[in-house]
Design a protein around this nucleic acid. Sequence first.
DNA 1: AAACGGCTTTGCATGAATGAACAGCATTTA
DNA 2: TAAATGCTGTTCATTCATGCAAAGCCGTTT
Lengths: 307, 307
Amino acid sequence: MNEQHLKWDDLQVVLAIARAGSLSGASRRLHISHATVFRRLNAIEARLGATLFERHRHGYTPTLAGEDLAATAERVQDEVNSAERRVIGQDLKLSGTLRITTTDTLFAGLLCPVIAEFRQQYPSITLEVVISNQVQSLSRREADIAIRPTRKPPETLVGRAVGDITLAVYGQKEHWQATPALFEPSLMLKENWIGPDVHLGDAALEKWMMDKNATYRLDSMLGMQLAARQGTGITVLPCYLGDADQMLLRLSQPIDALTTQLWLLTHPDLRHVARVRAFMAAITEGVSEKLAKASRATASKQNAQAE
Amino acid sequence: MNEQHLKWDDLQVVLAIARAGSLSGASRRLHISHATVFRRLNAIEARLGATLFERHRHGYTPTLAGEDLAATAERVQDEVNSAERRVIGQDLKLSGTLRITTTDTLFAGLLCPVIAEFRQQYPSITLEVVISNQVQSLSRREADIAIRPTRKPPETLVGRAVGDITLAVYGQKEHWQATPALFEPSLMLKENWIGPDVHLGDAALEKWMMDKNATYRLDSMLGMQLAARQGTGITVLPCYLGDADQMLLRLSQPIDALTTQLWLLTHPDLRHVARVRAFMAAITEGVSEKLAKASRATASKQNAQAE
DNA sequence: AAACGGCTTTGCATGAATGAACAGCATTTA
DNA sequence: TAAATGCTGTTCATTCATGCAAAGCCGTTT
């Protein structure tokens, strides 16, 4: 036997195939061509003199040896990711790339102009924005900063709460403008409600909507906003989104049970990275003012009704 | 920041530079060109945006980040080596490569014909023989099988003792053939002794030679054999070596304090590899007979004197 | 039954990586 | 003191690895 048959990068290929269960799945995980995955696996097996995967038409299943290597690869991956974070965590330059993950609602309703301003302020920092309602793993280096509404952030991450996100009932202005009062939601059960489907992933909202019997469900707040604009029914939206929409009218006070906080989160290892700090400061400044403005709009409407 | 800047193979380069302290040293460790080391390190640093080594004319020293990555790389190396041994340890084929390490003395005096016979018997097995008096690490995959004289083998390895290696005093036949008796070594203190230097690495032999005042020292048994052939003095040699040399004559009984055992050692993970088993069986059979023959030659000479 | 989607496998052109050779500088050796 | 040695750094030609495109097979959907 020669000294070393296993190239360290080989483990990454084995892991991707084992976890994806196919060559094409692995190629998508690794962002390389499936032809390359195919050839690299065959080269690895030839070098080791061992069969790592059983071939099927629908894909590949690992042998015992293949699974052993995949488990090893996971441990190596943790080591590599930790090391990389530690090294990059010392970066004091206001340049380089930042990868941000946030929801479509937050991006469209709150963050877009703030990020544009940050771009002007720090042109040397390259931004990659992942707009997804799926959770991106910060420890797995899928993103550097997460901007999310949450009532309880993960303990493994660090960050700050920027402000409260209040939610209230909204309806089409054209339909509801002749009714100036704010309603108690429990008195609106006979209305047609537009609600969230299970993919939106807000358990508290789903629970709150249970007695509303929504027969029109969408998987995003933006979708619910668009539906309410059509006069199809009433729905619950974040105040920053609903209040800014000229075609919608606020129909209730903010609903305490649905209030969340907006959190900026990053991995502890990255908290001293200069561009991470700069970005979080800019978002905090730009967004907390907008959330405060939404809060003031709530109070103004209440005073107007008292007169 | 992009998802991943650190290629897993990068760690290997960083480790080699950190431990060798220079690009050329690292290139020798990795068996690649120093130009490649130079370029790969610069590429790694550019990707990470961090300085891993300080440059000097005499070589490179790691920064804190570089040392951190090197420590990580060592852990990864252990993982990779263990995984490879486990996978290869299931290999049941009588083909592939075997890497053997043994001493120059054992190779020249005992193993050469036995290995040649093994080559004829298993032509599909490629042998790489490292002849060195330095210890080669089996856990670091520098060799698969070690053949060594030792009185106490390392506990982390597995193997078998093939037989005893006896050592006795030898002198030039031309000079000593008129003196048929065997001497007690303590009565030969006034002779000119040829001894081992410190690099031979046999502490028991060095201790035994202390009162012999050897003023001609060599760093190998083969060297001591050649010197004794010239009639320069008397020396201590393994019986399998001295008895087979027509120009030398045995002058003493085997010296109990110097007797060692010949061990075949391998890593526990490799003990079921078919070619490892085949090689160890062949060496055991071929060598134990030769060591027994040396033992019989001792008894015959003693009987001749009793008559 | 045809179309579609997902899988694996193969050939060719291109880009990336590597080794060989060279150059320069400082230190060591004869 | 000159030559040898060992280091880093650069250029050019070659080799290797990769992506693109194509082909084949099979199961599912229309």
